[in-house]
Amino acid sequence: MSDYTSKIKEISERLLKEEKVEIIIGFRKGTVPMMNEPCFVKTPEDVKELVWDSNCGINLANYLTGRKEKIAIIAKGCDSRNIVTHIIENKIKREQLLIIGVPCKGMIDKNKITSMFENEIMEVSEDKENITVKGEGFEKTLNKNDVLQENCKICVHRNPVIYDELAADLIDEQKVDRYEDVRKIEAMSPEEKWSYFDDLLSPCIRCYACRNACPLCYCPTCFVDESMPQWVGKSIDPVDTRTFHLLRAYHCAGRCTDCGACERACPMGIKVRLFTKKLEKDCLELYGWQAGLSLNERPPLDTYRPDDPEDFIK
């Protein structure tokens, strides 16, 4: 990963020196294991802060919304797809952006690794495919592929789809079954489904981290904050919580790139991607659509075909 970091620094420094951009959006080293902090860099001297490793799971497209200056942004596969979506939705202009693409081998799952050890983890380091976890009285090396974030495990767009510079050579894409978990739920009876999601959502504290971590959620007033009419109650009634999650997901229909930002952000470890993945699967099956791959195609809910499937309509 250190070669990624040095290449990113090199490109960033050049862009700033040549005044091609005013600001670089990237990551700096976090203060706790397995966390990096999104940051900006404005001078060539500060470029040294930038890092790249397997803890850069936050989707940086989230930090582009409405910005006015000329920006260089570091983008892995999913980030780049969300940048495409941002451009399509007029949240940023392509001309403003210099995209430093990072072919991504996946981000590691902090919750998963934490839950593997009884004791507190003090330090996590990585070397190619190996993740070394150290804590009081233990040290263990894990295979990175075993501890990837769920969305990274099944990622089929690891290379950036749009970029101006590259931080490393492009890598092979995976061929995987993306929807096994969704199919499992689809096969349940309505009653089972209902209680499955009741259990899934019961820890929710309505902090809205899932919504705010999502680069797609930029409405000036979110539906949960609307008061005339008030669509969703603000207490922790499970019906309100479920409605929030359902509508949050539906707002991402045809736009979600399964970057996993929502799930990563959840302080309670709820698998909120299960909602958006269902929509993603349907968009693919019904309309042959995958979000954020092209600047020239309209997203599925912003267009139609006269012969769209309608066997559910009487």
Partner: peptide, 15 residues
């Protein structure tokens, strides 16, 4: 029609 298709599937998926 597109909105309904996705929405109907989603709420039935949730039970």
């Amino acid at each position: 029609r597109r909105k309904f298709a996705l929405f109907k599937n989603l709420i039935e998926y949730m039970g």
